[in-house]
Design a protein around this nucleic acid. Structure first.
Length: 178
DNA sequence: GTCTAGATCGCCT
DNA sequence: GGCGATCTAGACG
């Protein structure tokens, strides 16, 4: 486990920008660079963990460095990286990846549609991530999180989160800008 | 380019 | 029974 992940989600979310998600599938490997994240925590009305632990959000309360994958809108999956001390109910939603390896496979997973992996639902379709990956340990080869760096010209921007109805004003979304 | 509605279902009130 | 940490196609101009 990467030490940084045991810190609070609002601190981890910006630091995950530039890190790599590596997905191993029967058809090959996909690697993507994280370019957009959002932080959620238990005292946050917009967070699934706000009302405490349930069967659905159980992995958010597990150890940091694991995945929390949920199903929403009847058709989409979204992936978080669990952060903070175990039991804290925190996570960082991965909203966008820049695919740096395995573009063809990614495009096939997406049914030939662009964009490849911007937006949390598209990202999960692109990497074939569904509820079977909920609770997955992100040091395991099938889906692995690797440290990365920002390019010289890149800076971290932040602003309000997307698509939520509660705590709209909190600036917990982070993305790479120039 | 912007806007709107429809898809589709598990979870929570 | 209502609605969501979404995406897409189609309408408009």
């Amino acid at each position: 486990m990467h030490e940084i992940l045991s810190k609070h989600s609002t601190e981890v979310a910006p630091q995950l920008l530039g890190w790599i998600l590596e997905r191993q599938l029967p058809g090959g490997i996909i690697r993507g660079r994280i370019t957009e994240t959002e932080a959620y925590h238990q005292d946050d009305p917009a967070s699934h963990s706000f009302r405490g632990q349930t069967e659905r959000n159980r992995s958010m309360f597990g150890a940091a460095g694991h995945a929390y994958v949920y199903f929403t809108y009847g058709m989409h999956f979204c992936m978080n990286i669990v952060t903070g001390p175990a039991g804290s109910g925190e996570g960082v939603l991965i909203r966008a990846l820049e695919i740096i390896e395995g573009e063809e496979l990614t495009l096939a997973n997406r049914g030939g549609k662009l964009p490849l992996a911007t937006g949390p639902g598209r990202l999960c379709q692109a990497l074939k991530i569904d509820r079977s990956m909920d609770g997955h340990d992100l040091t395991q080869v099938t889906l692995k999180l690797l440290p990365g760096k920002l390019q010289d010209h890149e800076i971290i921007r932040n602003g309000p989160r997307i698509g939520i109805q509660q705590a709209k004003e909190m600036p917990y979304r982070f993305w790479l800008g120039k």
